[in-house]
């Protein structure tokens, strides 16, 4: 290999290696941190320590971990299921049954994707107040069930749904809702998987809206608990690391189990 090419290779691998290492380091730090005492963590100790059991025990007693985890899981799974149901039906409807009126509504719907949540949060809070839903998990789920983004995602994906499958089913005598249920959903399984991943991630990690709505400790989600643990004047970082790991594990597992759908889901929007 000639010298300039060799140097070029070294540069490329050096750069990419550094990028990869920096990207992964906080994960390693988090895992190592669960075994270290807070004192070691704030002194930058990089080796494995002996405080894992202690940290874990404290996390479970201080934060009522099982309940908190259950809260997050319940909100995310239920929220994701409802979002996929309502928004995929709508995305399918907008694509399959074209009409000028609905096309206009759809254009308006796309605009709502751009609306910052800050605009919505005060009125939403008041609406939830009137409905008596403050400090409930339903209040967290409801506003995201019809998501402009997910509808958009499904409409784009539906363009790849073979129209002849639909036509054949119509000739076969299926009602429109039966076509959706028995033909569309099974055919589009990978689209649903990808959408599941992105919506689950978003609801699992949601912070601002639960911060506003959930007020008592036994209703809180894991994200909220970690935030409040870490914002103490002297945070117990050992405990924070255990919480962080618990909060990250589900998404990490989903990521490694469904990496293809994960990436596909993220890209889905611009295809």
């Amino acid at each position: 290999m000639p010298l300039p090419r060799l140097l070029n290779r070294i540069g490329v691998y050096g750069f990419l290696g550094a990028m990869a290492l920096l990207s992964v380091f906080p994960f390693i730090w988090m895992i190592v941190g669960t075994t270290n005492s807070t004192g070691d963590i704030i002194l930058g100790h990089l080796g494995l320590g002996h405080a894992f059991l202690d940290n874990t025990q404290k996390f479970f007693t201080q934060a009522n971990a099982p309940l908190i985890f259950w809260n997050s899981a319940k909100i995310s799974l239920l929220g994701t299921a409802l979002t996929l149901a309502v928004s995929s039906v709508a995305g399918y409807g907008f694509e399959i049954f074209r009409s000028p009126g609905r096309d206009w509504l759809y254009a308006g719907l796309l605009l709502t994707i751009m609306i910052p949540f800050a605009v919505l949060m005060i009125p939403l809070f008041m609406i939830m107040g009137r409905l008596g839903l403050i400090n409930t998990h339903i209040a967290i789920i409801l506003p995201t069930v019809a998501s402009g983004f997910v509808i958009f995602y499904f409409r784009q994906a539906t363009k790849a749904f073979p129209s002849e499958l639909r036509d054949a089913a119509r000739v076969d005598g299926l009602k429109e809702w039966q076509i959706f249920l028995y033909i569309y959903i099974p055919t589009m399984r990978s689209t649903y998987a990808a959408a599941f991943v992105i919506v689950f991630m978003a609801t699992w990690n949601n912070y601002l809206w639960p911060l506003i709505v959930l007020q008592t400790n036994e209703m809180k989600t894991i994200t909220l608990v970690i935030s409040s643990l870490a914002s103490a004047y002297y945070p117990d970082y050992g405990v924070v690391m255990v919480g962080a790991l618990v909060a990250t594990l589900p998404t990490l597992i989903v990521f490694f189990a469904m990496q293809r759908q994960f990436v596909q889901g993220m890209l889905g929007a611009i295809k």
Binding site: D167, V171, T187, R189
Partner: peptide
């Protein structure tokens, strides 16, 4: 009349077989 009540069957270019 609804397609399924016209007493006909159709074969499509792409076969339109349900993959699942």
């Amino acid at each position: 009349i609804d397609p399924s009540h016209r007493g006909l069957a159709m074969v499509f270019q792409s076969y339109a077989l349900n993959p699942h």
